[in-house]
Amino acid sequence: SQQIATAKDKYEWLVSRIVKNHNENWLSVSRKMQASPEYQDYVYLEGTQKAKKLFLQHIHRLK
């Protein structure tokens, strides 16, 4: 749906803004993002596993 696509774009923007180093780990980054509406919306719509998967894809691109 359009809502999910929009939430994903915003979440990816948030991840790219916060995660600048491929050594970052999911636990510390997800804690930093918990207060962000972009993170909350995406997790609400798609779940934590998908959020983690996108985070890991971003990390992989930074290597």
Rank of each mutant, 00 (worst) to 15 (best):
S1V: 10
S1D: 14
S1M: 09
S1T: 12
Q2K: 11
Q3K: 10
A5C: 09
T6C: 11
T6L: 12
A7V: 11
A7F: 00
K8E: 06
K8N: 02
K8Y: 03
K10V: 03
K10I: 02
Y11S: 00
Y11C: 01
Y11P: 01
E12K: 10
W13M: 15
W13Q: 15
W13G: 15
W13D: 15
L14E: 04
L14A: 05
L14G: 02
L14M: 06
L14S: 01
V15P: 02
V15A: 00
S16K: 14
S16A: 13
R17H: 09
R17Y: 03
R17D: 04
I18K: 05
V19R: 02
K20R: 11
K20V: 08
K20Q: 12
N21D: 15
N21R: 06
H22S: 13
H22Q: 14
N23C: 11
E24C: 01
N25M: 08
N25Y: 00
N25E: 13
W26Q: 07
W26A: 01
W26Y: 00
W26L: 03
W26T: 00
W26S: 01
L27N: 14
S28Q: 14
S28E: 15
S30F: 07
R31Q: 14
R31M: 09
K32W: 03
K32Y: 04
K32A: 09
K32L: 08
M33I: 09
M33H: 02
Q34R: 12
Q34Y: 07
A35D: 14
A35E: 14
S36F: 14
P37A: 09
Y39W: 05
Q40D: 02
Q40I: 10
D41S: 11
D41N: 12
Y42N: 06
V43H: 00
V43Q: 03
Y44I: 13
Y44C: 14
E46G: 03
E46H: 11
G47W: 01
G47T: 01
T48F: 06
T48W: 06
T48P: 13
Q49V: 11
Q49N: 09
K50E: 12
K50Y: 05
A51D: 02
A51I: 00
A51Y: 00
K52T: 00
K52E: 13
K53G: 09
L54D: 06
L54R: 04
F55V: 03
L56V: 08
L56Q: 13
Q57K: 15
H58G: 02
H58D: 00
H60M: 14
R61M: 09
R61T: 10
R61D: 08
L62S: 02
L62N: 02
L62H: 00
L62P: 01
K63L: 06
